[in-house]
Computed example of a mutant assay.
Amino acid sequence: MATLRELKDRTGLSLAALAARTPYSKSAWHRYLTGTKRPPRSAVEALSRLAGADPVAVLALWAAAENPPAPVPPPRREKGRPRRRLPLWVLALLGTAAAVAAAVTVAGRQGAPAPAGQGLVAVPHCHARSCQGELPDASVCARDAQTRSTVTGAGYDVRLRWSPTCGTAWSEVRVRSAQAREVSVRAGQDVLSARYPADDATGIASPMLAVPSALGVEACAAVGGRLACTGLDVEPAAPE
């Protein structure tokens, strides 16, 4: 089955290694991957997690395969040419292999925007308190994020970001030259921060705080010994 084979290739594991890391034997994985036997839900979920893919997207397609659409009448075959019949669940999954491939690709890229039509990929794997402490670029929370407040410093901008889907807020800093930086977010007594060296060109965000709205949240960044903060109910602090 194309989808499971792609997930298996992403893990870089052999069948024996898959068997060692899951409750399923090497021969069972061989049957699942060749399409001779329908894989159980737990096997699909286990392989998705080993591959670093969003199991929600893959499991949705796995469940849809139980009730495949009515098959289109096949074209007339030439005489004397044998026709191989595949199980309906294999046909259903093969028909959506392209969509799953796109979902797996996007799930493996941090901070990548969801392509049009890939609604399944946009399902967050966390919400509110379960997102606390995670980086937004490693989840789908960044995809619907809104910039609620901004302050401009000397060589960088600080933004307060909020995701209505995930119910989280965080701070981002955009530097205009390579500099070490510390990004933090505060709501009441909750404070989370992250430090990035000058040679890290991708680290821009603090961890996420679980908040019902961006009101009362303060986003700060320290770059080159200068601090700038912004928030919806605080006066932006000018850089030192």
Rank of each mutant, 00 (worst) to 15 (best):
A97S: 06
P73R: 04
A46R: 11
P124D: 06
R176C: 00
C141T: 00
V123A: 14
L160E: 10
P136D: 13
V104C: 15
A194I: 02
L227N: 12
G95M: 13
A107D: 11
P207R: 00
G225S: 05
G153N: 08
R129N: 05
R181C: 02
S177D: 09
S171H: 06
A142Q: 07
G117T: 02
G52M: 11
A180D: 13
A51Y: 02
L135C: 05
D199I: 08
L227C: 01
A28E: 08
P68G: 06
A53I: 00
S213H: 07
P164Y: 08
L86P: 00
P69A: 10
A238R: 09
P212G: 12
R143A: 10
A65W: 04
D190M: 12
T36H: 06
V72N: 05
V234T: 08
K37S: 13
W89V: 06
R41T: 10
E6C: 01
S48E: 05
T96F: 10
D9A: 12
G35I: 00
A70H: 13
S149H: 12
G224P: 06
G80L: 07
N67A: 14
A214E: 05
R195L: 05
P74A: 13
A187Q: 15
R181L: 02
A51I: 01
D200A: 09
L86S: 10
A17T: 12
L135T: 01
A145H: 04
V211P: 11
V123T: 15
R41L: 10
T34Q: 05
R38A: 04
E6I: 10
L215Y: 13
E182T: 14
W162Q: 04
A221D: 01
A70C: 06
A57R: 13
L232V: 02
P136K: 08
T230A: 01
S14Y: 01
A97R: 04
I204E: 08
S171Q: 06
S48T: 03
W62N: 07
